[in-house]
Simulated assay, not measured.
Amino acid sequence: MTELSTNQLNELSKLINRFTNSEGSNKTAIPSLFFIRESDITEPIHAVFKPSFCIILQGEKEVLLASDRFRYGPQDYIVSSVHLPVTGQVIKASKDIPYLAFKLEFTSSEILSLLDEARNERANQKMNRAMFIDKAEPVLLDAVTRLARLLDRPQDIPVLAPLYKKEILYLVLQGPHGNILEQMALEGSQVYRIREVIEYIKRHYVEAFRIEELAEKVNMSVATLHRYFKQVTAMSPIQFQKNLRLQEARRRLLAEATDAAEVAFQVGYESPSQFSREYSRMFGLPPKEDIKQLRENQVHSKNA
């Protein structure tokens, strides 16, 4: 790590420390920008990553996408180019040196707008994972720092924040994995079609679907859809839907006073016993025991 990079990371860390009021994800005054802080190692957290750019300033984190493992630390950034159900865990953090991260969400239309202005045709258009990690160069850290500094000049946010965000996304597009973002935004590309399937499943995760119908929607053969979907997401369409259902079921069980059988039907399961088996396989405990443990952990965290 160069002296310049170290200074940039230190400045960003100080900004995040000043503008975070609580543990976890903190919204900022800049639209789509979040600061994340954890002062201790966390339990594995199941969530759906939105399309986003996230750079780590302190600590380390590990993300599981199906069987793929992504581990990243200071000066690393991770990008999810589509919605992806993942399991994330902060694996290095302390009260003295908390885990700190800068997360910027984006849309495919923002990527497409950039491509229209600065098209960069690439020879390598093969299908890749929708998630990747790279090291942030000083020029990218500089753009990230300038965006974060706007929190001290809120009057400048409406004009300058969109420009700095655009610069950050442009620099990621120019990087070694930029083709992944590019293909996700280009209408007509095979990867764009997979993104359409992902969005459809996300909107209709409660409903049963036939893979033949999905393939027909995006003008693909069933075999091609299966192969490309797995290359992009590391899972099949059915596994993707199952992850969404189970994550939503867990969220509802934790937030509402309802039983597992009722929630199973709400998220699309016809058999409570099948729901319980798949829930246990994903979260390690049956629904009732898992929710009890989560609530006890929440009480312990509040009292700590």
Score class of each variant (00 low, 15 high):
146 R>V: 03
90 V>I: 15
268 G>D: 06
43 E>D: 15
278 E>Y: 00
64 L>Y: 14
101 A>E: 11
164 Y>L: 12
249 A>S: 03
93 A>R: 02
24 G>Q: 04
51 P>H: 05
209 F>A: 12
65 L>R: 13
74 P>G: 12
170 Y>P: 05
166 K>D: 03
56 I>L: 07
145 T>F: 12
221 S>I: 05
167 E>N: 11
251 R>D: 07
34 F>M: 14
112 L>S: 14
69 R>A: 11
199 E>P: 01
246 L>S: 04
68 D>Y: 10
31 P>V: 13
250 R>L: 03
159 V>P: 00
263 V>I: 09
165 K>I: 03
215 A>F: 09
44 P>Y: 11
31 P>C: 10
3 E>F: 11
169 L>S: 13
262 E>W: 00
173 L>F: 10
163 L>H: 06
270 E>V: 08
245 R>F: 02
5 S>I: 12
97 I>R: 09
293 Q>C: 00
216 E>K: 15
274 Q>H: 01
119 R>M: 11
67 S>L: 07
275 F>N: 06
125 Q>G: 01
159 V>T: 13
211 I>F: 07
215 A>W: 12
115 L>T: 05
296 E>G: 05
143 A>G: 04
114 L>W: 02
121 E>V: 13
26 N>D: 10
116 D>M: 11
69 R>E: 12
277 R>L: 03
276 S>K: 08
290 D>A: 03
136 A>M: 11
31 P>F: 13
160 L>D: 08
93 A>K: 01
293 Q>F: 01
